[in-house]
Design a protein around this nucleic acid. Structure first.
Lengths: 197, 197
DNA sequence: CCTACCGATCGGTAGG
DNA sequence: CCTACCGATCGGTAGG
């Protein structure tokens, strides 16, 4: 085994913060995961808090990237929503530990960084609101929708998948995305929709 | 101030476990919340674990109660789903701290109690599956639905509301329930549905 | 319900 | 990256 670097330490933090929580993980736990002493981590990192900050920031930047992509994308609101759903799921699935740490441990960040993360996530959520709003205006979606409520509901649904969706199962990620998008646009009900003119 | 009892200690645990997490809350924190020493809690409770067990069990029993109600209820699948949505939300809203502790801290239970809680929650989720399944069979819902996937998605959406829904806002709980039920059955899309014969 | 205390563990530092 | 160590805090007990 070669020497560990900062990236290794952050990788261990993603895993253990996701599994045991930030407060349930000690620096010695992280060291054990890497085969070194807890105190040795301080040659790579200045504090335990910093590790959480790093994991949350890398997740936030992924979400930001998706938002930027959708903002410059052409297509209907339905297509943009589909891309948001698929892209969001992809981020959750590509690194589930990073995603779970982001979702569950964000509240344990130092105040300044927590506020920063909250602002970032609201900017991200704003993209959802814009897409839904556009769909309401051009009548792809019901025009009486509570836009920010719907954004909250959609994100709740997507983020909740981290609690039970496993790529090892029979359903792959893009199929899950299709199912979710269909549920969001058409619902569970069986009657086929009449096409709007 | 009169002497505190076991119920007071559990009440404090609901609040602090929800806000700071199980591992982020010390017995001294709980004592401070009640205006007594941390060590004094041990005249009401045998361990810190026991507090988490109690909070999780009381939440689980509420969900079980809702499941029992719906199982003996008459009506269409759509009506039963609506009752599950409203009832589930009511439980989350009536004691948000209890609900958040149940949802987020369940993984920190001692193994035996954790498995017990997982079984309980699956029994509860089974009620959702039964209602969806019935709706698929009688064509209220699309007959090709992946039933257990839909149950997971619906519960993800409902449980996610604990992260942002506040009763102090403009939207009351039953209106939220109506919005969610409408989203689940009919989706976002604007075209009116053709009635099934 | 309190004081006084236990051994274990915490995040982190010094010095190599 | 290690050993040795710091003061603070942890869950919990004894004895009143």
């Amino acid at each position: 085994m070669t020497r560990r670097n900062r990236a290794d330490v952050i990788a261990a933090a993603r895993v253990l913060f996701a599994e045991q929580g930030f407060h349930g993980t000690s620096m010695r736990d992280l060291g054990k995961e890497l085969g070194i002493r807890g105190s040795s981590l301080y040659s790579h990192v200045v504090s335990k808090d910093e590790l959480l900050v790093d994991v949350v920031r890398e997740a936030a930047s992924r979400f930001q990237g998706l938002a930027d992509e959708v903002k410059t994308m052409s297509g209907t609101a339905t297509e943009k929503l589909s891309r948001l759903v698929q892209g969001h799921l992809q981020i959750l699935v590509e690194d589930p530990d990073q995603a779970r740490t982001f979702l569950n441990e964000i509240r344990f960040l130092p105040e300044l960084e927590r506020e920063e993360a909250v602002v970032m996530f609201d900017r991200y959520q704003e993209t959802f609101r814009e897409v839904i709003e556009a769909g309401c205006i051009n009548l792809e979606f019901r025009s009486d929708l509570d836009v920010s409520l719907m954004a909250n509901l959609i994100l709740s649904l997507l983020n909740g998948t981290t609690r039970w969706f496993r790529t090892e199962g029979t359903l792959d990620t893009s199929s899950l995305g299709n199912e979710i998008h269909l549920l969001l646009t058409d619902g569970l009900a069986s009657a086929p929709k009449v096409e709007a003119l």
